[in-house]
Design a protein around this nucleic acid. Sequence first.
DNA 1: GTGATGCGTGAATAATGATGCACCGAAAGT
DNA 2: ACTTTCGGTGCATCATTATTCACGCATCAC
Lengths: 366, 366
Amino acid sequence: MNRPEHSATFDSEATGGRWAVSVGGGMSVCPGRLGRYRVKTPEVYTDEQLRVVAHLYYREQLDQRRLGGLLNLSQAKVSRMLTIARQRGIVRFFVAECEPRDRDLERRIERKFDLESVAVVRTPDGMTPENKRQYVAYFSASFITSLISPQTKVVVAGGRSIGALIPRLPEDRHRGVTVLPALGVVDSVVAQVDAPELGRVLARRWGGRFMALDTPAIAPDRQTRDSVLRHSKARLVWRRLGQADAAIVAVGTPTNSVFANRYVVSDADHETLVGCGAIGEMCGRFFDRRGCECDSPWREQVISVELEHLKAFPQVIALVVGGDRSAALTAAIRGGLLKSLAIDVEGARALLEYEPVKKPRTVGRK
Amino acid sequence: MNRPEHSATFDSEATGGRWAVSVGGGMSVCPGRLGRYRVKTPEVYTDEQLRVVAHLYYREQLDQRRLGGLLNLSQAKVSRMLTIARQRGIVRFFVAECEPRDRDLERRIERKFDLESVAVVRTPDGMTPENKRQYVAYFSASFITSLISPQTKVVVAGGRSIGALIPRLPEDRHRGVTVLPALGVVDSVVAQVDAPELGRVLARRWGGRFMALDTPAIAPDRQTRDSVLRHSKARLVWRRLGQADAAIVAVGTPTNSVFANRYVVSDADHETLVGCGAIGEMCGRFFDRRGCECDSPWREQVISVELEHLKAFPQVIALVVGGDRSAALTAAIRGGLLKSLAIDVEGARALLEYEPVKKPRTVGRK
DNA sequence: GTGATGCGTGAATAATGATGCACCGAAAGT
DNA sequence: ACTTTCGGTGCATCATTATTCACGCATCAC
């Protein structure tokens, strides 16, 4: 009981994807597996037929069921025809330009700090910090992904920002990286945002393998740490940490770090650290305003990737949300700890405006 | 729930504007009561917010739930924001132009027959007759509506075509017409497409009132008819029929009319009618090729609007689907029975090509 | 203050759209 | 000729989106 639908003609610029989207003046049909479909889904429907269906659906606003009734098509068929109509560009969506990144700030930061690449994400006003993290994570995900080569070793730190980031990273089964956590388990109570957890997820996501670092992030004292590293099989992993190709890290402050938040950084500890000149933290290690690790007892207890190693990585990307990290960030950058940065507008502005208390003793670039 | 054959469904409550649609080069934000909303729903959201949501939804293809999670909005809110984004034109749909009407044929018919206005609807190939009716009805609905002034008296005939039309007529609570059926009940078994039924529906649809004609469409004989009209209170209604401002009618043939289809038009009757020169039918009345009512017994028994009255109406719109009505149509037009016409391409072509023949042999018999 | 009134909201729910699946017929392969 | 393959289809079902509903919070009139 059907349409003698036949009258093959025209050029169907078949496209994969689902929605033909156009933005601003130009128009970009969504990508996808073109050639395949071109062959697999030939001219089953006339452009004219699709136009009619599209017209009735989008302009006349008939729902698919009614529309099908009118043209004697099943609802499923209408749905499929609409998909094809979008693919062929018979229907296009124009979305007002919304540039989620501030290119200008990016340039300025890149120039000022001589960073490899910077993403500054515009966050809508009135977001809660958590929203902001999610938002920035979302919009910097592809940026960050693009900075990491397939088949490499990637170190992943923990924290809420990175915790927000990982699930947004585009799945990519062919990236096949080796993921290592920047540090071990911080607490017996495993948090979702601990580096090992995140690493595991990332490895799964990118179809890579994960190497666990089954050590505590912090040992009670130096001896313990050394023996852990000497005897444990984790030693291997730990050493590989130093030879990774890239790292995705967050930047903390003495008052706001993984440890400060979840741990024992007593007021006393805090004072000690500040006394040592600590101004920021990365991967569990505190550094001064030159970006050099502080020579505090912490240093002897932490089991994580070393700052000196980070410096040597071809790529180290920091994900920072918020405007209270300028000092730490500046220090880390000046110290050559970072190569790239993803940050929100607020943070970017603060960073640009931040003036180190003392003369910025620009430690040479990496 | 499958194939509702043809919808006995109601009207889809056109809920104001749902989609901002743009076509071709121009762009029209969906109508609806913008002004109203503009006032009722002032700048609750900034354009920027809407852009972000629209971007994430249309370009990044997040579903509303995920998107809401990202921005900390309920799914419902996202849905509403998208609606507003469409209304404000932040999102626009471009649909390839699809001209459902054939302007050229319309011109030619208007010119050739000196009709007031003509709509020729392009029907896709391979439709069943029922589909075609639905389709033509759909696309001629606004055309027909535009020809009928508010606050006037409208006569409505029956039949499948008009039955398909009525539910497609745009709702318009301010039209406030008075609807009268072209004729009474044809049978004790009321069909959905009988004039009284259709009239009722139309009146509801246009927020007007309906005047019932509680008489049979056909009386057994002249006496009965006269007495029905004399005594019945329907007389009033019947007389008003003659004073209406507009009519929406179909055109039948002696072999294919309301009566032929549903009733007693025996072969004998048929012969009688043809003998009288009947070539077409409208509102239960048969006419010859000059458009004059045939002087057959039928004429004395029918209780319906008179052709002479139709002639006097400022507006009479015929809705015709199919190419087998050319003779009847030509006669009706030549006789001045019609002012406007809505027809499909096939019918239009047939009409233009049709050449009246002297011999009443023209009526193709089946 | 004390209701009214209106607007915006999320949760629940209804409506609508997309898709997995089995089936069918045509064309290709054996 | 028979079998296989493959695109295309409708149905049933699942997923997503729109809307209904009751509520909370503000403003406004009394």
